[in-house]
Every structure is written in structure tokens, then in C-alpha cells.
Design a protein around this nucleic acid. Structure first.
Lengths: 226, 226
DNA sequence: GCGACTTTGTGCATTTGTTCACAAGAGCGT
DNA sequence: ACGCTCTTGTGAACAAATGCACAAAGTCGC
């Protein structure tokens, strides 16, 4: 095993979760023709502390220059490589309701690294509709769009009720990474990676903090009175 | 300050982030007329370990019965209360493109706890369109829809380029919690809570793990050969 | 009532992540 | 060549989160 691979192997999860943010900030700098950036500046753009940024980057290797900063283009390349974005990953979206359609036309895929290769829906009414360059296909064509041996990411954008069934079908077809937008937890066998994105979860977390804030205000008032 | 409030005060962030998942799992149990559930079962439904679930719940108080489990209705209430969902929070959505519209009609809001009170967009073409029960309003009516003194959650679903401007406007209008769906990091003043949901970030994290997997496979092959 | 059985709640050890503070470099002017 | 200034990279201290294992506390059958 090369040293290089060993270095990649043990990038902490917390760091991996932040790398896309750095990549995006670097993209904005590139668009502004900025050639070099300090950890302080990049950290600000990405919304983290500079110490955290430097430690994160140190897990990838030593790509900065002391006294100067980081070369925007080179760091972009190194992070892309660490994340495995040197080639495009095929993405399949299942569920062409409001959300599925929004996702399909979302610029997020245009970002280098992903390519939507198929849109699926169970509803015969939707099958055949065109969206951008793709035609919506029925569920039973799933096996045809997954290339055996090639890794592929499945996006579940169906109602909660069918999310588990869809996930099972994806796994059976050989998809080993699933992004779940449905409003339910889904179970996947070991070895399959699953991430969940959920509007109401995020709102509820915000609600908690709002409530904490108002609670704190009440307490201050109470203390003043008491 | 009551003991109760003190207990709520120091719920760890990691726990808060998982409470919505428990709440959802409990909702499904309620729908199935299940009255009582063990930590093992509930943990499975929510996709966490039972030890983690029990420790999480222990931060809210002691609402289980040893040897029996948790009362579904009571635990639902306690978690709702801890999250501050005992009354509805008003939500404003800014940006009525594909994503904004999908969010507005998403069932996630129907979940008890939130109520969309306004839809805004900068584009005069969209202003006046109706969506469900609401009419899309121009940006300059923002001040009118935020009730002074009442906490409110703002959802940013605009293109990346205008996200920061929109966030600034929201903050100025008095919104103190922001959920950002735009493909960019935004800066908010201290005291304002901000969370970010991003498709490409999630895809990139999945890509990283896929790449790790394929790397691991290569390494195994190399070891067998060597 | 009492013992067998079940499941919670929690103290403790371990792992993971963050922050601090500074030595080690690298460029620059003289 | 040398010292000055800047910024990285990192060891070490600190904090947060997780997982383990079991005592405490309940139910149930008899």
C-alpha cells in the first residue's frame, strides 16, 4: 500500500464532511481569478475556524506554503482527488414528484463530479416525460441503467411510504450508495452507504435553538425580577 | 430557574440532531396503533444503536419504564416539548424556483410544528402566482410578514448568487433562524442560527466513501498478489 | 410475596473531534 | 547572508460523543 493511499484512508469523518464546503469556496475564488488564499480567508468563506481548516487540510497532505497560503488551483485539485471527484459518478434519481424534478434540474449535479444517468418513477403517467435530456423510465428498467461492477449513487425522492421498497430495489440492482430525501428512515444492508437529507429534521433543530433562546430570555427576566 | 428548564438547557447537540428521527419513528408507531416500544425496537426504526437512544432520551428525563419500555404517546409528547414543537413556528420561504416550490408543497411542513406563512421572490414574473393557499409576494413585503418579537424561520431557496443578499434581508427583518438550501455558504451575524442543506455536499461525501471502497478492494487484490 | 426475567438509566473507558499556541518554514528587503 | 514578517502544520490539552456493561427498577407467574 502506497503512503499516498494510507494518507487518504484515515481522513476523519468530520473532515470529509467539510471538504465539499472548502471545494465550493475555492470554486468561488477561482471564478474571481484569485490565485492564492490564506487559511484565514478560506476558512471565513467556508464558515469554519482557520485552525480547523488547517487541521483538515493537513490530513490530505502538506499543500500550503508557509508565509504565503494555498494555491487555489492546486488545493482544488487535491481536495477533488481526496473526495474521489476525478471522474464523474453516475447518479440515478427515483421519484419524479416535485422534489425529484427539482433535484433533476438542480445545478448541484452540474458541479463537476456527478452525472444524472437515469430518472425513474413508478407512476405510468409520468413515464415517458422528458426532463432536460432524459426520459422518465419505469421502475423495472432499473437493472438496465445500473452497470454491473460500476459504482453508482441512487437518490430516493419518493413519498415516505415507498422509500424502503425503492431502497431495497436499488440495493438489489447493485447500487451501493443511497441519498435519501424521503421523510422516513430506511434500513440498508451493511456495506451500503446511506445518507439522509430532511427538511423537517433541519427545521426541528432550528426550532429547538429558537426555543432555547426564548427560554434564556425568560430566565434573564426572572433573574432580574427575583 | 426550574429543574425542568435546567434539564433542557444542556441537551448535547448530537442528541438534538437525532431527536427528530426518534419523533418520526414514534409517529410511524402511532399510525400502527403501537402503544409501547422498547429502546431496541425504536432505535432500530430510527437507525441508531439502542445504547445511543437510551442515553439521548436520558437527557430529556426519565420517561421509560424498566422491564417494559417507553409509552409511545408520552415519549412523543416529551420529545416534541424538548424540541419546542408545542406550538407552530412560522416559516418564510424565499426563492420560488423549482426547489422553492417543491419545498412549499412538501409534506414536511405539514408535520406538526411548522406553518408556511409567506412565499417571496424577487422576480416580478412570479409575484402574484398562487401556490396552495399562499400568494407569492415581492421581496419588499418582507418586513410586513415578519411579526416583530415573534421568532420566525427563514428558508433560503434562491440561486447561490443572491443567497447572501436574501439572508441579510431576512436578518434585518428580524428573522433569527435560517435554513439555507442555496449552493453557497452564507455569513450570518452572531446570534442568528444558520443551517445548511446541500445536495452536492451529500453526494460528494458519498463519492468519498465509494472511492474508499474501491481503493480498499484494490489493496486487497494487491496484497493477494504480493 | 417472591424469585425469575426484562429493559431502562448511567458510570466509566474509549474514541473522536476541536482549540490553542507555537515551532518550523518560506518570502522579502536590505 | 541575515533578520523580519508572515502563515502553515502540528503536538498537546481539552471537550464532546460513543459504546460497554451492569446495577436499579420494574413486570409477571405462581
Amino acid at each position: 500500500m502506497s503512503v499516498d493511499q494510507a494518507a487518504k484512508r484515515d481522513i476523519p469523518d468530520a473532515t470529509v464532511a467539510r471538504l465539499p464546503g472548502y471545494l465550493r469556496a475555492l470554486g468561488q475564488l477561482t471564478a474571481q481569478d484569485v490565485l492564492s488564499v490564506s487559511s484565514e480567508e478560506l476558512a471565513y468563506s467556508a464558515g469554519v475556524s482557520s485552525a480547523k481548516l488547517r487541521k483538515d487540510l493537513s490530513h490530505l497532505g502538506s499543500y500550503g506554503v508557509r508565509g504565503v497560503g494555498y494555491d487555489v488551483a492546486h488545493l482544488t485539485y487535491q481536495i477533488s482527488r481526496a473526495l474521489g471527484l476525478t471522474h464523474d459518478w453516475p447518479v440515478i434519481i427515483v421519484g419524479m414528484g416535485n422534489l425529484g424534478r427539482a433535484l433533476a434540474s438542480y445545478g448541484g449535479f452540474a458541479t463537476k463530479g456527478f452525472k444524472v444517468v437515469a430518472l425513474l418513477d413508478r407512476d405510468p403517467q409520468l413515464v415517458g416525460d422528458r426532463l432536460d435530456d432524459l426520459t422518465i423510465q419505469p421502475m423495472d428498467e432499473l437493472a438496465d441503467v445500473v452497470t454491473p461492477g460500476e459504482a453508482c449513487i441512487g437518490v430516493v425522492a419518493t413519498p415516505a411510504a415507498s422509500a424502503q421498497d425503492v431502497a431495497d430495489l436499488l440495493v438489489t440492482a447493485g447500487v451501493s450508495s443511497i441519498l435519501n430525501f424521503a421523510a422516513t428512515a430506511i434500513q440498508v444492508p451493511e456495506g451500503v452507504h446511506m445518507r439522509k437529507v430532511d427538511l423537517s429534521t433541519e427545521l426541528q433543530i432550528l426550532a429547538f435553538h429558537e426555543q432555547q433562546r426564548s427560554g434564556a430570555v425568560s430566565d434573564e427576566l426572572l433573574e432580574e425580577i427575583g
